[in-house]
Design a binder for these strands. Structure first.
Length: 575
DNA sequence: GCCGTTTTCGGCCCGACTGTTTTCAGTCG
């Protein structure tokens, strides 16, 4: 069983936790955390790179020592440094670090003073009153901890970006309407386009901060206030979503927006560049000594360290700063680049609208072509098409194409990949279609070896044009299937066929790292809505955000091509 | 533990807010 990057990252996270509990050098701790982030952002498995003899210490934040530990972890499955630390720190303390308000210092005080080493110990210490004896735990802190102990078990849930948007966008709109407010931007991981967000950061540009706070107080969706300063206010909405509102003056808006957008690792890197230039960057601007030299726009902040504006979706300190420095930033795809959509359903299978209704909705969404790809018969739950019904739909598409202006329908199918890797419809009927989208809808839990060979076998079918939602994940509900993505993407590039980036908000599959890997492997990507109703063409915008996080340009995406070129590319997949 | 167009040693982003404390440490983002 190969060790995955996530496991290496977790090992380093745990080492960082344990080091912090031992009050070790904070920079050493940060080095482990930074390395964990770097590892999570790697699209290729480090285990493979170690096996290939690659130099991992070229990765940012990874030097000879950590490269050695990575090699140890992937070859032995163990990490001696971690095992040693585990013996030195009482078990359970790391768990206490997860409780908001408790950091390494307080956890150490709890452990050494009261032998509190678990959540249960802490509950007892609060109930019995012994906690009051420990310095640093006054009445407010004890009350806060009692509350957190009740809440934190179900806390770590992240929100789908699209769900968070339903609460965040109305609040942003409300704040925009407040008198004296110049500008409101939802920043943070939301602006960077993460598929899920932990909380929402809203940046407000206004001269009169107290007036904004007063207006926020009148917003009727707020359940509680957890922090209130003159510049930053934290509230929890009735939905349970936490929102940080940060108020800034217009002259510092760019610096504040850059700071509040993050990511933290990206900000630290940019600030380090500033230091090298004898500058200081904070959320109020860029300073040389006392003098403020930039900060009204994000461009001016980047410009102060000789960088062009880096798109928010790239700001993860995964190499984007180096690319920007070298003038090699990709021109990321935009929604306006999309000319068509290659995956959609009608009421012939599990969609909600007729063929014609979907065609008109696609046209209204600015698309010039749309592939109709209802499910194949095998997927019983969705009334899939058999050969006869598929042929009737193909006739209906021909008629509609004769009738409609401004939109061309392509004849397609979303055919099941069976457990064996065979397809659920015979090759003969598939060959009559313009486009065949192949997808996994069952047998999710095969081993990586079997799952990979299953998909590779499906891709060998000459009819297959696109591998749909390749990871088959449902965010928060179903883990991605175990696949050797690099092999799949290289096979797709070689055949050639395309890989889908499915835009359904709970799928967003390919994910960001896989999208980058697809680009690196040269596999063309189809950003597809998988729409089951006309309104769902709106999901394409979210798919594009994910594609931008994957550094994709319009050239990397097959459905940015005009219909003629698309048809040529599709024909190349069939031969 | 990492890193270098000042450095292979000596730095390492920067500020807001809270609670507990009397001027600041801890936590958080």
């Amino acid at each position: 069983m190969p060790v995955h990057n996530e496991e290496i990252a977790r090992t380093f996270d745990e080492i960082a936790d344990l080091l912090s509990l031992r009050d070790e050098n904070p920079f050493r701790i940060r080095a482990y955390l930074r390395a964990a982030q770097t590892i999570r952002g790697q699209q290729r498995e480090l285990a493979d790179r170690v096996k290939a003899g690659e130099d991992l210490d070229a990765l940012p934040g990874i030097g000879a020592d950590l490269a050695g530990k990575i090699a140890e972890i992937v070859t032995t499955g163990r990490c001696q440094a971690l095992e040693k630390l585990r013996k030195q720190v009482p078990a359970g303390l790391a768990e206490l670090l997860r409780i908001p308000g408790l950091g390494p210092k307080r956890v150490r005080a709890l452990s050494s003073g009261l032998k509190v080493r678990s959540r249960r110990d802490l509950e007892r210490a609060i109930a019995s009153g012994t906690l009051a004896k420990v310095s640093g735990f006054g009445p407010r802190m004890r009350e806060k901890l009692a509350q957190e102990l009740k809440l934190t078990p179900q806390q770590p849930a992240r929100w789908l970006r699209s769900v968070a948007a339903q609460f965040a966008e109305p609040l942003a709109a409300y704040l925009r309407a407040v008198t004296g407010v110049d500008e409101v931007v939802i920043a943070g991981s939301y602006r960077r386009g993460r598929d899920t967000v932990g909380d929402i950061d809203i940046l407000v540009s206004a001269e009169d901060a107290p007036a904004v706070a007063a207006a926020l107080r009148r917003y009727d969706e707020i359940a509680s206030w957890s922090a209130e300063g003159t510049k930053r206010i934290t509230v929890v909405l009735r939905s349970g979503l936490q929102v940080d509102v940060r108020i800034t003056e217009a002259s510092a808006f760019g610096a504040a927006l850059h700071y509040f957008t993050g990511s933290k690792a990206h900000n630290i890197h940019v600030r380090r560049l500033a230091q090298e230039r004898k500058l200081k960057i904070n959320e109020y601007g860029v300073f040389r000594g006392e003098r403020r030299i930039a900060g009204d726009t994000e461009e001016s902040v980047f410009g102060s360290v000789d960088l062009p504006l880096i798109p928010a979706e790239m700001r993860e300190d995964q190499g984007e700063i180096e690319l920007a420095r070298d003038g090699k930033l990709p021109v990321l795809v935009t929604r306006a680049d999309l000319r068509g959509d290659l995956h959609a359903h009608t009421d012939a299978s599990d969609g909600q609208e007729s063929l014609k209704s979907m065609a008109l909705a696609a046209r209204a969404a600015g698309l010039a072509y749309l592939a109709i790809t209802d499910h194949s018969q095998h997927l019983g739950v969705v009334h899939g098409l058999d050969e006869n019904r598929l042929r009737r739909q193909m006739d209906a598409i021909d008629r509609l194409n004769g009738e409609l202006k401004g939109i061309t329908l392509l004849k397609g199918i979303e055919v099941d990949i069976l457990e064996s890797g065979d397809l659920a419809l015979p090759d003969a009927v598939l060959a009559e279609l313009d486009i065949v989208v192949a997808a996994i809808h069952g047998h999710f839990d095969l081993s990586e070896r079997r799952q990979t060979s299953r998909v590779l076998k499906a891709l060998e079918h000459r009819a297959v044009s696109i591998l749909a939602h390749p990871g088959a994940r449902l965010i928060g509900a179903r883990r991605p299937i175990a696949l050797d993505f690099e092999r799949i993407l290289k096979a797709a590039e070689a055949r050639p066929c395309f890989v889908e980036l499915n835009s359904q908000p709970e799928r967003l599959d390919l994910d960001d790292a896989q999208s980058r890997l697809a680009r690196e492997c040269g596999a063309l990507v189809s950003v597809a809505s998988d729409a089951h109703s006309g309104a769902q063409f709106g999901y394409l915008a979210g798919g594009i955000v994910q594609a931008r996080r994957g550094w994709l340009t319009a050239r990397d995406i097959v459905n940015t091509r005009p219909l003629g070129e698309l048809r040529r590319l599709l024909r190349a997949t069939i031969r």
